[in-house]
């Protein structure tokens, strides 16, 4: 018998449970804020044509044609360069917390500007093939194995940026743990055990509680010879423990992402609080492969477990 605090959250309203809001990936390279450069170029070329025809000089027109070629290439060439942009993640961390900054070691094949799209982040300018840190801010709990990155280039002349999306595969899954939310006294109240106080688990140390039959591996020093003689079987002393009984925390997540995040945050807060209090925790979650019951030793492993967990109804 375990000292158990069960907290089951009912599944959310199915109608409201929106699917994950996956922003579509734009493979097509498109110019960014093209009006200014294009309009400027057109005005410049019109001025040039005006000067050429006013002066009647063919050389002005020839220079203008060269400038037109320069501007055309400057405006259009990035559109041909953008599809060739690739970005590789060299190393990525394993753990993160939702809403906090994560740095990915990325390296590009040429100079570009990249901004994480599927998660939050700040733009990063990559100079050539020099590694840099791409900052992303995962907005919510979960396992992130790839990040959609908008890569942009203005090569070779820097006149107009063209961009497209790339999927950046992380070197290892990024477990985005929920934020820790302290639920205050209310939950702590519910967790305060009163019915389980009298059923401590037998442990090796502490006050003597009773005896039990021998199991392999038990030390000879722990044999209760008197009881053995009394029963005819080898009996082992059992002691009583006070604080190191694990708490079993069951996390059932609804399909609604926001509600699930809230619950995960609550659970995380609870786990952190209990771990700080020196208690051991066994966490029961639903992962895509099924139910998982396992102890969590620290907040990192708890974060991973919660990041992996899915709605109970989505398990295979």
């Amino acid at each position: 018998m375990r000292w158990r605090s069960r907290r089951r959250v009912p599944p959310g309203d199915r109608a409201r449970s929106a699917m994950a809001s996956t922003r579509c990936i734009r493979h097509l390279a498109l110019p960014e804020r093209a009006f200014g450069p294009v309009a400027g170029s057109v005005v410049l070329l019109l001025v040039w044509a005006g000067v050429a025809h006013a002066s009647g000089s063919g050389w002005v027109q020839t220079v203008g044609a060269a400038v037109a070629g320069l501007l055309l290439l400057g405006l259009v060439a990035p559109g041909f360069a953008a599809p060739g942009l690739t970005l590789i993640c060299q190393s990525s961390p394993t753990d993160a917390i939702a809403g906090s900054v994560v740095e990915l070691d990325v390296i590009g094949n040429r100079s570009m500007r990249c901004t994480a799209r599927s998660v939050g982040g700040t733009p990063l300018l990559l100079a050539g093939k020099i590694p840099a840190h791409l900052v992303i801010v995962p907005p919510r709990r979960g396992v992130v194995s790839a990040v959609t990155v908008r890569v942009a280039t203005a090569a070779p002349l820097g006149l107009l940026w063209w961009s497209r999306d790339r999927v950046l595969e992380l070197t290892r899954p990024l477990y985005v743990a929920p934020q820790t939310r302290d639920q205050g006294a209310a939950l702590r109240q519910t967790l305060t055990p009163d019915e389980g106080q009298g059923t401590p688990r037998p442990t090796l140390t502490g006050d003597l509680r009773g005896v039990r039959p021998y199991q392999h591996g038990d030390g000879r020093r722990r044999v209760h010879w008197g009881a053995s003689a009394h029963t005819g079987n080898l009996m082992i002393r059992e002691s009583e423990s006070r604080q190191d009984d694990p708490i079993c925390l069951i996390v059932d997540l609804p399909r609604d992402l926001d509600a699930a995040d809230r619950i995960a945050e609550d659970a995380m807060g609870e786990i952190v609080m209990q771990l700080n209090a020196g208690r051991r925790i066994v966490l029961e979650t639903t992962e895509s492969t099924g139910r998982v019951v396992a102890p969590v030793a620290d907040r990192v492993s708890a974060g991973r477990r919660l990041a992996r967990s899915v709605a109970s109804s989505d398990a295979r």
Binding site: T94, R172, P173, E287, T289, G290, R291, V292, V293, A294, A297, S301, R304
Partner: peptide
């Protein structure tokens, strides 16, 4: 791939978990 390594079981189902285990150990 890592996905292919996912097998039945409730605890540490994949090589990914082995990676984690190695690091933690």
């Amino acid at each position: 791939t890592t996905d292919d390594l996912v097998r039945e079981g409730t605890v540490n189902p994949s090589l990914d978990d082995a990676l984690e285990l190695a690091a933690a150990l």
